[in-house]
Design a protein around this nucleic acid. Sequence first.
DNA 1: GTTAGTTATAGGTTATTATCTATGGGTTGA
DNA 2: TCAACCCATAGATAATAACCTATAACTAAC
Lengths: 321, 321
Amino acid sequence: MDLRHISFRLLEVFMSVVKTGSISETARRLHLTQPTVSLQIKRLQEAVDEPLVIMQQQKLHVTEAGHELFRTCQRVFGHFDDYNDFLAELKGGERGRCKIAMVNTAQYILPKLLGPYSNLHPHVELPLEIGNRAEVLARFERGEDDIYVFSHPPSLEHAKAARFLKNPLEFIVPTDHPLANQQHVTLSELVKYRFLLREPGSATRMLFESELQRRGLVLSNSVQMASNEAIRVAVSSGMGIGVLSRHVLPIGDHGFKVLTVSDASLASHWYFVIRTDRHIAHAARSFLTFAQDHLEQYLDGRWVRNELHGLNLSLADQQIC
Amino acid sequence: MDLRHISFRLLEVFMSVVKTGSISETARRLHLTQPTVSLQIKRLQEAVDEPLVIMQQQKLHVTEAGHELFRTCQRVFGHFDDYNDFLAELKGGERGRCKIAMVNTAQYILPKLLGPYSNLHPHVELPLEIGNRAEVLARFERGEDDIYVFSHPPSLEHAKAARFLKNPLEFIVPTDHPLANQQHVTLSELVKYRFLLREPGSATRMLFESELQRRGLVLSNSVQMASNEAIRVAVSSGMGIGVLSRHVLPIGDHGFKVLTVSDASLASHWYFVIRTDRHIAHAARSFLTFAQDHLEQYLDGRWVRNELHGLNLSLADQQIC
DNA sequence: GTTAGTTATAGGTTATTATCTATGGGTTGA
DNA sequence: TCAACCCATAGATAATAACCTATAACTAAC
């Protein structure tokens, strides 16, 4: 039996012939002519090298080989129906995966969106990758993920970015620090103290340093630390001043004090970033649409900057091609 | 997803791509060129309307949709493999059915062949039809069965017949009949008595009557009976003389006596008959070959006339077209 | 930076498929 | 016997599939 040149259309026609028990009737149902169906069946029989139906006293009689082939076809089409269901879910964003890579700071706020989304779409896998800016950037270059979360989006040609949340920076000091109880502090006062900072590539540090440079200020003393947690703990134990995203600060007193700096309001934004030169997973589209619709609901409304509309619009355009 | 124009070849190529993880490698294995495979995959993706494999850092990566399609294909090919096994058995005569229609008298001897055959090929169905000559002839005309067993084969154009067993006729009389103990009896002596005969169409009766006509003899008195059993019983109870196939006579004394008629040796033959204008079931070929090889083994060698060779030879020729 | 290996694309040829219309031949039932 | 069905076959055509070669473009490794 040579399956090679047998198409599913052929099997469809054959099944109809078995079901209706008539070549003419099949032709009518499938909007074909009777000779077409006749010939199709003949071709199939040649491929199988065995008669599938025989005329017997003016009635079409299905042979054993034909019967068994019919059963085989039923099973086969069953599997393809299943596959179609799967595809439908996949395309509808109900199934599949959406790999997200994010910078460290974002790990505190993205779950607030991912949780509700995941509950709504339980069949969507959501693997998360967390790294510093350099690491996430490298992943972006290699196109390893579906969605990237940055502050300071990379300005590469085949990237599309959209802000979704303001990321205000806060200065924190130990509770026993000289500035801890001062009403208004200025940036120039602060730089005399020792600072605890993330690595040079980090968005937080870049933002802070560019502000210092703009103002012609220089830090007298700074220590580099590998994570936001490390900085928080170090500040609490009196090692110096920390500059941290508002979103990573726990609510309530935790051994440090947030300063009100009168002459500096530092803030960056988080962006959802996608590559436009790659196929975008349906689940990723689905998540971004969800985010656009529910940012205000699940994130603190004070900081939300919902600019996802344009991104989703351009994705919808792309979908057509 | 539009299956219509997807052939199994296409799925085969796709499966190989998934298995090898490479388009070039697949091309080499399937003796195609790389662009051919590339294009096939593209076509398949268009049919599914969803990427199945994507290039990621110089490596082919199978998408979710691709993976699921692969699994679907595995199942589908599994079913067709099963079907191929089924076909192989069918074509080898190991499976299927062989419908045999036979005249009444044959029912006593054919089972001696069918039994051993059935044991050898347990998956072959062997439905039997038994009727008088007219009935079997009608079935033959309509082509309802695969093999027919006649004495006096119908001489129709698209029929092929082969003798396999001699069918000698015997005259039986009640044990208390005047002729019962006579050494030699002649036909002309017999016709004075009452005869018990089958219906006019039956081969036995036709043979007997044509012999009478040839000799210019006329029966003085005859009674028609519907079955060989009825005749046997009637003879035993003294109703007259019977003419029966040797093969339907039980061995040993059963209330009647077999005469030795010196001037008449009546015998017909049983034939296997098939229609040559129809497809011959593999099981039927298989049975006829079996019969050719084992006639002498399972039937009384004295009567066997094995002329199946020619029949099977012409069947083998036909098989080619 | 050259080579070797990969995939993608363009352009072309040939074989096959998927259709059709027209027609012939056989059955059935009025 | 004739109309109304059925199926099979012939002959024709347009679309498409299935391939090819040549070539481009990219990446990894030497």
